[in-house]
Design a protein around this nucleic acid. Structure first.
Lengths: 361, 361
DNA sequence: TTATTGATTGAGACCGGTCTCAATGCTAAT
DNA sequence: ATTAGCATTGAGACCGGTCTCAATCAATAA
């Protein structure tokens, strides 16, 4: 009657120990893979474990060891393929190193991001990889640091956080892309980006709290100025946070009497919507308007014409930051590294000279 | 001197209790939000908690309650936007209900899937949502069931598993799509799908161990036969598991002397590659070849011509299965539901009559 | 005034592992 | 024969919560 199976309570070390006629401590030693045990006992315990179909409770294990084997990842939006590739890079590296990943979406909202970080800390993740949605409010990131957990930043740097960071050369990439446009003769180039900012009107760099966005704008402005464009600030369009907003912005842009002859989109979701609106308006690319976007999304190569893009190695970005974090989790104490990964510009067919209305340079 | 901060050990209930001059049990009551406490004591404890910046250890909490508040999700491939949308649906519902999601990728490999399930059970997730990569080896799914955790199946049903399942009307969808093709006059239609099968050659339905794939093939074959196509089996192409394989398959297909006049792709990743190869070959869609694909991926609407697709509501699929699972996790004991969600066929411009070489019906 | 009742609070077991330390047994050295 | 020394094993504390049960106390009823 003692063999009667309990409801469905899971098998514990004690159960195995009893079955193998050894102490709980000994059973734990072989099951947990630590300490020393004689061959005979080891075999007995293993046999008992198999017979009972023992499964270690990782939760309990985590509680004593203090390590959960989990890496928390907070990302802007998984639906954006840039992030899903990055996450895939993180996951692959993590799994290979024996870590699991808990994924959270911030929807680029600081409050959601803070909540996610809080939950993750509560779950006692071993480390966090975050794509900070802004640099003004970073109290929650400070907390991570204070809790002793390593933090790593993905895609967006934070000047006053000296932690492992992997970004791409945003400023430079934006400059190169813009330069291609100015060299083709464009002087009225719109830069459409996704920052959610009350008022929408762009005024100065200081109002942008996301490093990557700021750097790209910086690069865009620099390249515009270099080619003699006056007050390029007026071409910066903020607020393309979702397809509806992007659509509105693009429609406004295309309705202006001096509509831009080229558009630079800060991500592929924006570009897709821009592309659609351009199409709907019956405008031709690149004859009527040129287009370049950040991120080599799959669709950009199959449109007619295919789109010129800035290729951000998203997978590598994720892979690299995960490697850095894991090295730290394994005890390495290198000084925080700031890795900047090169992007490349893939020229396809979406850039041409501006329509001859007002002429080139 | 007693105020001296400990290294960086985290603040526990006991610490708060001491600070507030109450017992651990009482502090736990207010911090844990259970039992009853007087207003005064509650205020004291809360104040102490704030002063000490107390953060509950979810791990410890999970250990006693037996619930981790985590839903484990094992999916074929997050990079596939079908899955990333589904995951987004799951995540949104989960977060709203106070659950977290641990995501694992199986890469459609049964061994990886089994390992992932094992890990997730070890982490004591409250329930699992799995996209089973095959129906032959389901021992690991049986284990989930035996461990008392609810299991829910996403996108793929398992005949001998009576658990909550959400799928789409694959058979019907494939039939409708094929019918559009046959009605346009096609009789030589290739169906390209991603099952990894030694030998690649399709022989019979029984060799397909993924329900959705099987049903689609079934629908395809039925529609072909209905329009008088003989031995439509020979048009089924297995093995398009990655872009390279897909490319090879498509190239072979297009090189045949009696090359298909239409292609039906089982997912958007496959279709994208097929589309590219068709383009490279200088063939025109739909004049030279027609194309339909499962999943309304973003790129399908911006190509020239835009692609006719079977729209699978991936987000809804994820949302629905998560809702079902969560209801169960909250104690509801409804009999397992098998929800089949309708797909819709979005006709765009990639279907036309077959080129007039051999003529239509 | 004393017993009864209900509201609070405290003590301590427990979850399922890890890990320290002492006890035991056996071999080898004196 | 006695004992130091090493390899094994066992007992039990601990991690940080939850939760049961008993104790305390003031207020109400008899």
């Amino acid at each position: 009657m003692e063999t009667a199976a309990q409801k469905s309570r899971s098998v514990t070390v004690s159960d195995v120990a009893r079955e193998a006629n050894v102490s709980k401590a000994t059973a734990a030693r072989v099951l947990g893979g630590y300490g020393v045990v004689s061959e005979k006992v080891r075999a007995d315990v293993l046999a008992a474990a198999k017979a009972l179909d023992y499964r270690p409770n990782e939760l309990a294990r985590s509680m004593t060891t203090g390590k959960s084997g989990i890496i928390g990842v907070v990302v802007g939006d998984i639906e954006n393929s840039f992030f899903s590739f990055a996450v895939r890079g993180i996951s692959d590296v993590a799994r290979a190193a024996g870590f699991n990943v808990i994924l959270a979406n911030s929807s680029e909202q600081i409050e959601v991001e803070k909540a996610a970080v809080r939950v993750l800390i509560g779950k006692r993740v071993d480390g966090l990889i975050v794509t900070p949605s802004e640099s003004r409010d970073v109290s929650h990131l400070r907390e991570i640091h204070r809790s002793g957990r390593p933090l790593a930043l993905l895609d967006r740097a934070l000047s006053d956080f000296d932690v492992d960071t992997v970004t791409v050369d945003d400023r430079d990439a934006a400059m190169r892309a813009t330069k291609i446009l100015t060299e083709a003769g464009h002087r009225n180039i719109a830069y459409v980006t996704a920052v959610d900012f009350a008022g929408r009107e762009y005024r100065e760099l200081k109002q942008i709290y996301t490093s990557s966005v700021r750097e790209r704008i910086e690069g865009f402005l620099a390249a515009c100025r270099a080619s003699g464009v006056e007050k390029p600030e007026r071409f910066v369009q903020l607020g393309a946070t979702n397809s509806q907003e992007t659509r509105t912005i693009t429609e406004n842009l295309l309705s202006k009497h001096d509509r831009p002859t080229a558009i630079l989109a800060s991500d592929s979701l924006i570009a897709l919507e821009v592309f659609k609106v351009i199409r709907e308006r019956g405008l031709r690319i690149p004859e009527d308007i040129s287009l370049i976007t950040f991120h080599d999304a799959d669709w950009t190569s199959v449109t007619s014409p295919p789109i010129t893009v800035i290729d951000q190695p998203a997978y590598t970005l994720g892979k690299t930051i995960a490697e850095l974090l894991i090295r730290r989790l394994k005890g390495e104490t290198h000084t925080p590294k700031r890795v900047v990964i090169d992007t490349s510009l893939i020229e396809r067919g979406s850039v041409g000279p501006p329509p001859g209305i007002k002429g080139g340079q």
